[in-house]
Design a protein around this nucleic acid. Structure first.
Length: 305
DNA sequence: AAATATGGCAACCGCATCTAT
DNA sequence: AATAGATGCGGTTGCCATATT
């Protein structure tokens, strides 16, 4: 293939498709650090990448966004949640993913479809109904066990070992699976620091030291929270570009509380994962489940005035 | 050892919805 | 209100690694 940058130059205005390389990831991450997760099309219009805006967004959302559980198998609990919610909601993968911190709609979709394929094959091989009548127990075992109760394989790959080891024992904080390259070092900055502000920043500013999250919380008490850049919240609260409505809930019902608290995934808009890096599992378990039901949503940003 | 099947995943496509003008 | 562009979602495809025959 050769140097991918030359490749991009060679193809002129053509759209590049297929796998992303490290250089492209780097450009994309820098874009997000500067402008936030939005204006995807500008990457192409500025000649930075030969990718469509959609492709850029997808790459960010599915692979580069902080706190994704890349390389980790679905846990038994995650599997249970997917099964339950798919039963309730149908194929609303984005909705289901909001209840699974670190998982994307694509993850959930892929998980479900491979599960379905597996089930279909098992059913294919299962004894016919007449055969099953002769040996019901075997038939049931073959079909039901893998479909509903299959135990998760734990730590089946080196990558997964690495991922699991990155879980904090007490807080279950999730960190990016470490990869020794520039993209991930940039992402490390994104993970813990506000790498960009309302206005685009110079590349020279995209480096340490940034204030830590606790520092920011001190610096931006709730009453001043609207001063915190939307870009910052987009990343740390996993808010997507169009999530103005969810963002509006900050600070009283922060985005990273997610739509699933209180036992309901049906309220709330798109996006909105709990950010485990900020609020570890169990953080809210001390509160009554319906505590947030009694809070009124904040007006949307357009109404902030 | 080679061929085939399977699982897992990344990324594209078309359509729907949202937002800005 | 109409339109275009941007974004989001769900379905689908194709590639690659691994397991099985």
């Amino acid at each position: 293939m050769g140097d991918s940058r030359l490749e991009i130059l060679d193809i002129g205005d053509e759209i590049k498709k297929g796998r992303w390389n490290e250089e492209e990831d780097e450009v994309l991450v820098r874009h997000v650090m500067k402008y936030g997760p939005r204006e995807w099309s500008s990457l192409r219009s500025k000649g930075l990448l030969q990718r469509t805006g959609k492709s850029c967004r997808l790459r960010w959302v599915n692979k580069l966004r902080p706190n994704l559980k890349n390389g980790m198998r679905f846990s038994a609990e995650e599997e249970r949640i997917v099964l339950e919610l798919q039963g309730k909601l149908g194929n609303k993968w984005a909705r289901i993913a909001t209840c699974l911190p670190g998982r994307t709609d694509n993850d959930v979709k892929n998980f479900w479809s491979s599960r379905q394929k597996r089930l279909a094959r098992i059913l294919e091989r299962a004894p016919s109904s007449s055969e099953a009548q002769n040996n019901t127990a075997v038939g049931v075992l073959h079909v039901d066990v893998p479909a509903v109760m299959e135990a998760p394989k734990l730590s089946s790959s080196p990558l997964e070992e690495e991922s699991l080891s990155s879980l904090d024992n007490n807080s279950q904080m999730i960190k990016i699976v470490p990869k020794p390259n520039l993209v991930y070092s940039l992402l490390d900055q994104l993970d813990f620091h506000p790498a960009y502000e309302k206005n685009p920043v110079d590349d020279s500013q995209l480096q340490f030291p940034f204030p830590s999250i606790p520092d920011l919380q001190q610096d931006f008490p709730p009453a001043l929270a609207t001063e915190v850049s939307k870009n910052f919240l987009d990343v740390f609260g996993n808010v997507d570009a169009s999530d103005n409505g969810n963002l509006s809930q900050f600070p009283f019902v922060p985005q990273y509380l997610g739509p699933c608290l209180g036992g309901s995934c049906s309220s709330g808009g798109r996006g909105g994962n709990v950010n485990p890096a900020i609020f570890p599992d169990g953080f809210f378990s001390d509160f009554p489940a319906d505590i947030f039901d009694h809070m009124e949503p904040m007006p949307s940003p357009s109404e902030w005035g």
